[in-house]
């Protein structure tokens, strides 16, 4: 029931948006691609299975509905282990965002809160590789990462001061019909905590790096992919309980056979 309500709500939101996607989740066919975070040293190619991803980031309005239905996730309720002091601190009150921000992406949420939201919808957060695979596309190509135009669009976002968040769905959809993967907010991913990149970005060539976490350790490949690397840097700086003014999320689902 809850799931149905949430889905209906999201559907309503999407309809209200200028874009009117056919459904809330887009089918991403998956496939093999080069990740900036290889699964193991020397293994550049990663396979992503077919899955579904929210076309739009979760909004303040949608999260407000979640907070009403799940009071344990209202501001002030969760344990300090799961959220930091800034959790939903930008809202009008414990269940309502500031007027006029309803259609902005939800931010100031921890990984735990984001995961709980998706779980309540019968979904989950996308993995980094799923997110990276989907976000590599532009309107016409599956992998636009070497396209200077694609790169400069993303870098341009970094060149703007944060200020007010934009409303969702104002960017162009990519090949899969997914919006706002770039130029709006950072997004939590399920396995952000496994992105064991060094906090000092200049140590990427350190041969000792593998000593610490065995094959689970990741080193950055494709160092010219600045736009993506900056997202990796941001995620690697986070702890699961952290919340920031520009970190939001969207949900994903396995594609049922």
């Amino acid at each position: 029931m809850k799931k149905a309500v949430a889905l209906l709500f999201i559907a309503a939101m999407s309809l209200a948006a200028e874009v009117t996607p056919a459904e809330d989740l887009a089918l991403v066919p998956g496939g093999e691609f080069r990740s900036v975070l290889p699964v193991a040293p020397g293994v550049a190619r990663v396979t992503v299975a077919k899955f579904k991803m929210d076309r739009l980031p979760v909004t303040n309005s949608a999260f407000s509905k979640f907070a009403v239905e799940h009071p344990e996730w209202q501001r002030g309720r969760p344990s300090k282990l799961f959220v930091d002091e800034s959790y939903l601190s930008h809202w009008e009150n414990v269940v309502r965002p500031k007027r006029g921000t309803e259609r902005q992406p939800i931010t100031q949420v921890s990984w735990y809160a984001a995961s709980a939201y998706c779980k309540a919808r019968g979904a989950r957060l996308p993995t980094w590789h799923e997110w990276e695979f989907t976000a590599a596309a532009n309107g016409t190509m599956r992998d636009a990462r070497d396209d200077p135009a694609w790169q400069s669009t993303i870098l341009a976002w970094y060149s703007r001061p944060s200020g007010t968040l934009p409303e969702i769905g104002k960017t162009e959809a990519n090949l899969y019909g997914v919006y706002d993967l770039h130029g709006v907010v950072w997004e939590w991913v399920e396995d952000f905590n496994g992105m064991l990149v060094s906090s000092d970005s200049r140590e990427q060539g350190d041969p000792n790096a593998l000593r610490f976490c065995g094959s689970g350790a990741l080193t950055l490949e494709q160092k010219d992919q600045y736009a993506v690397l900056m997202r990796v840097a941001m995620l690697s700086g986070m702890q699961a309980k952290y919340t920031t003014a520009t970190m939001g999320f969207r949900c994903a689902q396995d594609e049922s056979p």
Binding site: D200, G237, T244, A245
Partner: peptide, 15 residues
């Protein structure tokens, strides 16, 4: 010290 403090001072927004 390693990194001149870089690794020890890596800080996300609002922290």
């Amino acid at each position: 010290g390693p990194g001149g403090g870089a690794a020890s001072s890596f800080t996300v927004p609002g922290h």
